[in-house]
Design a protein around this nucleic acid. Structure first.
Lengths: 141, 141
DNA sequence: CATTTTATTGCAAATAATTTGCAATAAGTA
DNA sequence: TACTTATTGCAAATTATTTGCAATAAAATG
């Protein structure tokens, strides 16, 4: 499990510095359990009174992703989103109406499928993305 | 199975006209078995000597999708792509190196999963997207 | 603690994909 | 053939994201 301290330590070992913006971004993302975009982060920080440029947030998230603390998540709106890498591997239920995101776990099924793909297709699966789009319980009513 | 004629007939019944651009786009997409973007289509038409504006292609694909002849496909590069709706339902193997797209079929597994989601989460799954990212046989070597 | 090094920031500007406004055009109809 | 209006093309606007670069501020060094 990643803490603010452990992430900062890891970054420092790679020669990265602990800046105001970086601390703010790391602090924020650690509270998130749902995917977020750079603009989401920037808005959240703005509301908290933390002033940083959008560009800084974009760069910060890219760094955190490249260092393995964040994973990419892509829904069908073309916006780049991230999610804490420390979260359990899971997939998403995306409500097309209220945009709410729920998670769903199902390691087993996909592991089996990936093995099949490796064998039958000689395709080396490194990761996958699986999203279900539909209506959440509330929006169905 | 959709033919150029059947699509055109269906569109006409909705009050849409058969234009040069429309015929060209429909003709092209019917030959495609892999996902394509608006710019892909525009390039292909340009090479064939069919002159149309990119905007026209964007609008045409949006129309064809809204009329159900195309489905959205989203990879993790943020580009909007489409695929013939008439193709068998399948998923994609995306080589992160050479960008080649291969298909994989596995209705059964996901049907089961969707049923579970409906029951356990009360989430009405309308569609899903599943992509595997990795290295294709050629790029592994 | 002052000084130096350089990672990082912020701003402006560039990209890139896509969308929108609108007048000109052309497909289908009377 | 004339008319109605869906469609086109061009310019311009949008949106998300990236890049260049000089100014700034962490961290290291003396």
């Amino acid at each position: 499990m990643n803490t603010e301290a452990s992430i900062i330590t890891a970054l420092k070992q790679k020669g990265h510095r602990l800046t105001q913006a970086r601390r703010a971004v790391i602090g924020f993302i650690l509270t998130q359990v749902k995917p977020f975009s750079a603009l989401d982060v920037h808005n959240a920080l703005s509301k908290k009174g933390v002033k940083t440029d959008k560009v800084t947030v974009y760069r910060e998230l890219a760094l955190l992703a490249s260092e393995g603390f964040l994973h990419d998540v892509q829904f069908d709106d073309g916006v780049k989103r991230y999610e804490l890498a420390a979260l359990d591997h899971h997939h998403h239920l995306v409500c097309i109406k209220c945009k709410k995101i729920d998670d769903i776990h199902m390691e087993h099924d996909l592991d089996t499928i990936e093995k099949t793909i490796r064998k039958q297709k000689k395709f080396d699966v490194l990761r996958h993305s699986l999203e279900f789009y539909g209506l959440c319980a509330r929006c169905t009513r």
